[in-house]
Design a binder for these strands. Structure first.
Lengths: 220, 220
DNA sequence: GTCTATATAGCGATAGAC
DNA sequence: GTCTATCGCTATATAGAC
């Protein structure tokens, strides 16, 4: 039957608490900076207990990534029935990732760490979620391109990677640390640079006509 | 006198070899992934000798960063007398950083590592170079904005940070690893997304007229 | 089942031999 | 002056007490 014992509920609640701590610590200090002792102390349990739930530090990171992908999927599901255009949905997703980052809840993993990346690639749950999210976004990207809202000269997967990269763009942290901008303004600025680029619209339009060379190098 | 002994020349040459190795290893494995033993082995000297030249691993990283900033400064000096517009010079700088990254010669430091960041902030050579490069770029940015080539709604320092961030954009590594693009095309694509944004020009122009909401959120 | 205490290993940094 | 050998510390992971 589907009956879940009280004991199992307690265990699951603690697991959630662990993943939540890992998520925040990964956002604050990154993977290499986070220690397992710290996680145990933050959750309020002994390290040995932590290892009863998760077999390794890599598994902890994977669990945190799965949770953030779960949340992303939930946000995608909301947007799917929102009546927004594909382009607006993509912007809304980008905005959401920036807000998660501002809230200090976006786990950051090192770009290059062969052991960790191998562990993540071997995690079926992580890879499945990542694929599902990527496919949904890919659909919206091609739709936005078909409607003429996203530059068709950019391959869809490059658009996808660009959006993923913006979800952990260090510029947000720098702007936040400078203290010169409100959170709202930071989000607006980063969305503008991501979707609109640095170039002014006037220049971009003028560059469409041959004879001038001020436009950014075309994506051949 | 300015006479430099043969011995000192040898020491300086070795120092250059050390920094060169550190630079490449930082680009390959990142700061946390790089070990001092590895550096010594790569240079072909004993670790103790390494510590005669540089007092710590952090100092090694700082030296590598100073060297890359030196090279950036040299490139800026070339561009300053090139006859290009400010906007074109900024694009040329961005292109150069992408090419350095493609060549596997862009050292990558962790975004969050208090000890390392403190050491870098305390390094006068590093901070001086960083300031000099930033100021030169800042001049070009404001000039490009005055000429209407860069969006004036974006504060100059945000443009600066965006360019710095593109110099270590992980998207380049992903595209390179996919093997689906030539180096030239990768550079073209990343320059296009950075300066031109994801949005198509047609949509961007249409959005200038009120009544539609397809443009990226304006930078208020 | 939970915690204390420890095993094990890797890395930054150094002392001492030649 | 250069290298071998090692120290000391930290962090992941585990065994055994209660």
């Amino acid at each position: 039957m589907a009956r879940v014992s009280f004991r199992e509920q307690v265990l699951q609640a603690r697991e959630e608490a662990i993943v939540s701590s890992v998520n925040r610590l990964l956002a604050q200090k990154g993977y290499d900076g986070m220690t397992v002792d710290e996680v145990a102390a933050d959750v309020g349990i002994a390290k040995a207990v932590l290892y009863k739930h998760f077999p390794s530090k890599e598994a902890l990171a994977a669990a945190a990534m799965v949770r953030v992908l779960d949340r992303a999927q939930a946000r995608l599901a909301e947007l799917a029935v929102s009546g927004m255009s594909a382009f607006e949905r993509l912007q809304a997703v980008a905005r959401w990732t920036l807000e998660v980052q501002l809230a200090g809840e976006m786990p950051s993993l090192p770009a290059q760490n062969s052991a960790l990346r191998a562990a993540l690639a071997a995690d079926a749950g992580y890879m499945g979620k990542l694929l599902a999210v990527s496919e949904q976004l890919g659909e919206w990207i091609t739709e936005a391109q078909a409607r003429g809202d996203i530059d068709t000269a950019i391959p869809p997967e490059v658009v996808l990677y660009t959006l993923f990269a913006r979800a952990c763009d260090p510029v947000l942290g720098v702007l936040k640390a400078s203290g010169a901008y409100t959170d709202e303004r930071i989000v607006a600025l980063l969305l503008a640079t991501c979707f609109g680029g640095l170039q002014s619209r006037a220049t971009a339009t003028a560059a469409r006509h041959p004879g001038r060379a001020t436009r950014a190098a075309p994506a051949r």
